[in-house]
Measured scan of single mutants.
Amino acid sequence: EPELVFKVRVRTKDGRELEIEVSAEDLEKLLEALPDIEEVEIEEVEP
């Protein structure tokens, strides 16, 4: 069974934007590691 992958769009407080694809596990780590995120948009990517 393929692992869930999420497309994550992040905007930081200083206005930088970042778009990455991460696994569910990595997404959890990412959110814990970035306390200064202003906006996060997450969508599931079809395998």
Rank of each mutant, 00 (worst) to 15 (best):
Ile37Ser: 06
Glu28Asp: 09
Ser23Arg: 12
Lys7Cys: 08
Ser23Tyr: 08
Asp14Glu: 04
Arg16Lys: 07
Val40Trp: 13
Leu27Asp: 00
Glu17Leu: 15
Leu31Val: 03
Glu25Arg: 14
Glu32Val: 07
Glu3Leu: 06
Pro35Gly: 15
Asp14Val: 01
Pro35Ile: 15
Leu4Asp: 03
Asp36Ser: 05
Val22His: 00
Val45Tyr: 08
Glu21Gln: 10
Glu19Gly: 02
Leu18Met: 09
Glu32His: 08
Glu38Ser: 10
Glu39Gln: 10
Leu4Cys: 14
Glu21Thr: 14
Val5His: 15
Glu32Leu: 12
Glu44Ala: 14
Glu3Thr: 06
Asp36Ala: 04
Pro47Tyr: 08
Leu34Arg: 04
Glu19Thr: 14
Glu43His: 12
Lys7Ile: 13
Ile42Cys: 13
Ser23Asn: 10
Ile37Asp: 06
Glu44Phe: 13
Asp14Pro: 01
Thr12Gly: 04
Glu19Met: 11
Glu28Val: 12
Asp14His: 04
Glu19Leu: 14
Phe6Gly: 09
Pro47Val: 11
Glu43Cys: 10
Val22Gln: 00
Glu1His: 12
Glu41Asn: 10
Arg9Glu: 01
Val5Ile: 15
Arg16Asn: 05
Leu31Cys: 10
Lys7Phe: 01
Lys29Asp: 05
Glu17Val: 15
Glu38Ile: 13
Ala24Thr: 04
Leu18Gln: 04
Lys13Asn: 05
Ile20Glu: 01
Pro2Met: 06
Leu34Glu: 03
Arg9His: 03
Arg16Ser: 06
Phe6Val: 15
Val10Asn: 00
Lys29Phe: 07
Glu43Lys: 10
Lys7Val: 10
Glu17Ala: 08
Glu44Leu: 15
Glu25Val: 10
Glu38Thr: 09
Glu41His: 12
Glu3Arg: 07
Glu17Pro: 02
Glu3Asn: 07
Glu19Cys: 09
Glu1Lys: 14
Ala33Asn: 10
Leu34Gln: 03
Asp26Ser: 07
Glu39Tyr: 15
Glu43Tyr: 13
Leu18Ser: 03
Val10Leu: 10
Ala33Leu: 11
Ala33Gly: 09
Lys29His: 05
Ile37Val: 10
Thr12Tyr: 14
Leu27Ala: 01
Asp36Glu: 08
Glu43Ile: 15
Glu19Ile: 14
Glu28Ser: 09
Glu43Asp: 05
Glu32Thr: 10
Glu44Val: 14
Asp26Tyr: 07
Pro47His: 10
Gly15Arg: 02
Pro35Thr: 14
Leu30Lys: 01
Val5Lys: 14
Glu21Gly: 02
Asp14Phe: 03
Pro2Leu: 08
Lys13Ser: 06
Val10Gly: 02
Glu3Ile: 04
Leu4Met: 05
Glu3Pro: 06
Gly15Asp: 01
Glu43Trp: 15
Lys29Ala: 10
Glu17Gly: 03
Lys7Asn: 05
Glu21Ala: 06
Glu25Ala: 13
